[in-house]
């Protein structure tokens, strides 16, 4: 049960991304950096979705808490980006405790609606307090106060952006992989599979849910904070309902394998969307049909994943 080195095998993904860096042309490089930042959010979502089996429709609130936390800290407190990152993560975690508290009380479809309402509340608050948040229009951060701004004397901004995203993604992948192999990870899976049984064995399931949500909050918040600190913009455009649904799509497309799925799903959806960007109208339909076909395929292709030995956490 003790985590082993082999649990860190999914780190192959960031390693490949690091190796690919010199080979990638400029635009795919920029796109990869964007996708890496977003896929941290995808991992955050998967912690709730795959590990404890809670489907939330409110994760955009956590992403937003990270984004606004970091952005507003930069603007109002100090332009130190590392502290801003910490502030973003801290605000996301505190919000995630609230969502976790909801999860401890209601279940299933009720929870979906409750989380949806919670994130809509954040969205409306962002619009309502627009003197502070910039509302729909948003706020631009000083370039010098952003993470890439700090690295500017050392390397080009594009490189800084790529490696900062890569570094954070590696930490997220390692964290999630170790977590899923740990005792706590097994407890999460048990919670997903049979909550009553686990409760009757004397485990505090509410506490477990709170823990899972706060892990999810760290990841989602880090992704949101990076969004602000790497791309120097915060705005309500990132908080809408669509931003809560996106990670559901990523994790579904990526398949039920929490170590690699969130990244693969996020990669695939975003690359497909990007491919379709220059196409004329109707591309949304093309992408949609492609994704639906693909999610059917991942369901059917479960045996391929099993053959490849990616753990779904049930093989014990």
């Amino acid at each position: 049960m003790r985590p082993r080195l082999s649990n860190l095998a999914p780190l192959v993904i960031p390693l490949l991304l690091a190796a690919a860096y010199p080979l990638l042309p400029e635009y795919p490089k920029a796109l990869a950096a964007r996708i890496m930042t977003l896929s941290i959010y995808s991992y955050g979502y998967a912690v709730c979705f795959h590990m404890i089996g809670v489907m939330s429709l409110g994760h955009a609130a956590l992403f937003a808490a990270g984004m606004y936390g970091a952005g507003l800290y930069t603007i109002h407190v100090s332009p130190d980006p590392l502290m801003a990152l910490a502030a973003g993560i801290a605000s996301a975690v505190s919000l995630s405790l609230l969502l976790g508290g909801l999860a401890a009380r209601v279940r299933g479809p009720y929870l979906m609606i409750a989380t949806l309402l919670a994130s809509q509340t954040i969205y409306l608050a962002a619009l309502h307090f627009n003197e502070v948040t910039g509302g729909e229009q948003g706020l631009v951060l000083e370039r010098e106060a952003t993470l890439v701004g700090v690295f500017r004397p050392l390397m080009a901004e594009a490189d800084a952006r790529y490696f900062i995203s890569l570094l954070t993604l590696s930490a997220a992948v390692a964290g999630v992989s170790l977590l899923s192999a740990s005792r706590l990870g097994k407890l999460f899976l048990a919670l997903r599979d049979d909550e009553e049984k686990l409760e009757s064995l004397g485990y505090n399931t509410s506490l477990l849910k709170l823990t899972a949500f706060s892990v999810s909050g760290v990841l989602s918040g880090a992704s949101g904070a990076l969004q602000a600190l790497l791309y120097s913009y915060v705005g309500a455009g990132y908080v809408g309902i669509f931003n809560s649904v996106e990670p559901v799509l990523w994790t579904l497309v990526g398949g039920p394998y929490v170590q690699v799925g969130p990244f693969l799903g996020c990669l695939l959806v975003n690359v497909l969307g990007d491919l379709a960007r220059g196409l004329p109208r109707g591309h949304v339909l093309v992408v949609g049909v492609g994704l639906v076909a693909f999610s059917f395929a991942t369901g059917r292709l479960g045996w391929v994943y099993r053959l490849l030995g990616v753990s779904r956490g049930r093989e014990e």
């Binding site: 082999s6 095998a9 695939l268 490849l308």
Partner: peptide
Amino acid sequence: RYALSSLLKTGIVAGAAAGLGGVAGYFSS
């Protein structure tokens, strides 16, 4: 058996993913 080969297998999945990304990138360009 699983423990021994998990590194290799995950590598294959990641490789496949990279391949997929590569193909997508090729078509993109």
